[in-house]
Amino acid sequence: MRTAAADPGPSAPPLPWPAVLTTERQILRPVERADVPAVTRLWTDPEVRRHLGGPVAASVVRIRQRRCVGARGVFVAARAEDGAVAGLVTIGWDAGRGEREVSYQFLPEHWGRGYAREAVTAAVDWALAASPTVIAVTQEANTRSRRLLEAVGLAHVESFVEWDAHQVLYRTPG
């Protein structure tokens, strides 16, 4: 997955913020200062960043650390049972396409347990309350992400090359 711009453009219908979304096992909420170490792991873990261009440079991480707390459309996916951060889900704005975009990253210890699917479904449903469609872009090679997007109801609509890698665009029906 690539990271959607968290700040929607002027033509984006407004979404209420801050927002808290709940699923069966998670709470999606704005990033808090205490979440920054876990979120930093998402940006620097080579396994998480495998299909995202690799770990983020330290200088960029420092900027992101200052800007992520409370950032519009950026949700921490925290396990309801213990508050542990499982991942990050962003609903942003793709200015080039003029559509809302979902992006997500989850820590490897939470992979394969359905947390990403639950969280992405909740975030997409939230975004669809104000937008006719939601898109997502992932690398063609990222088969796990592609399966997740299809499982939450997005359909493959386009393939292209960007950042020297084959990408696929998914969109909700609408």
Rank of each mutant, 00 (worst) to 15 (best):
R117W: 11
E118Y: 13
E99Q: 09
Q26E: 03
L28N: 03
P108Y: 04
A122G: 11
E32D: 14
R66A: 15
L107P: 15
R29Y: 09
R33L: 15
G53P: 01
L107V: 10
A84S: 02
A34D: 15
G73R: 06
V61M: 15
A38R: 12
V74E: 05
A119W: 09
T121Y: 05
V48P: 15
A57N: 11
V31N: 13
G96I: 03
T44E: 13
E81F: 13
A127R: 04
L52Q: 13
G92N: 00
C68V: 15
P55I: 02
G73S: 09
L42F: 08
G92I: 08
W93R: 14
V60M: 11
L42V: 12
A34K: 14
P37A: 13
A78W: 06
V120W: 07
R66L: 06
E109P: 01
G114D: 00
V74W: 03
V56I: 08
L52H: 03
G70F: 04
Q105R: 14
Q65G: 09
T90G: 03
A78Q: 01
A86W: 02
F75S: 09
V76Y: 02
G54N: 00
T23K: 02
L88F: 03
I91M: 07
G92F: 04
R66M: 09
A58W: 10
T90Y: 05
R64D: 00
V76I: 09
L88K: 01
A86N: 00
R33I: 15
I27G: 11
R97A: 11
A78P: 01
A34N: 12
E99F: 07
V89R: 00
R49A: 13
E109T: 02
I91D: 02
R25W: 09
E118P: 15
P30C: 05
G83F: 08
T23R: 01
F106H: 06
R29K: 12
G83L: 10
A57I: 10
A84K: 04
L88R: 00
R49E: 09
R100I: 00
H110L: 05
W111M: 07
V69T: 11
R29I: 03
H51K: 08
A38F: 10
E24M: 11
P46A: 03
V102E: 05
R62T: 10
V102P: 07
V76F: 04
F75I: 02
H51S: 12
R117E: 13
G96M: 04
R33Y: 15
A123I: 10
R50L: 12
T22P: 10
R67K: 04
Y104F: 10
G112A: 04
G112N: 01
E47K: 13
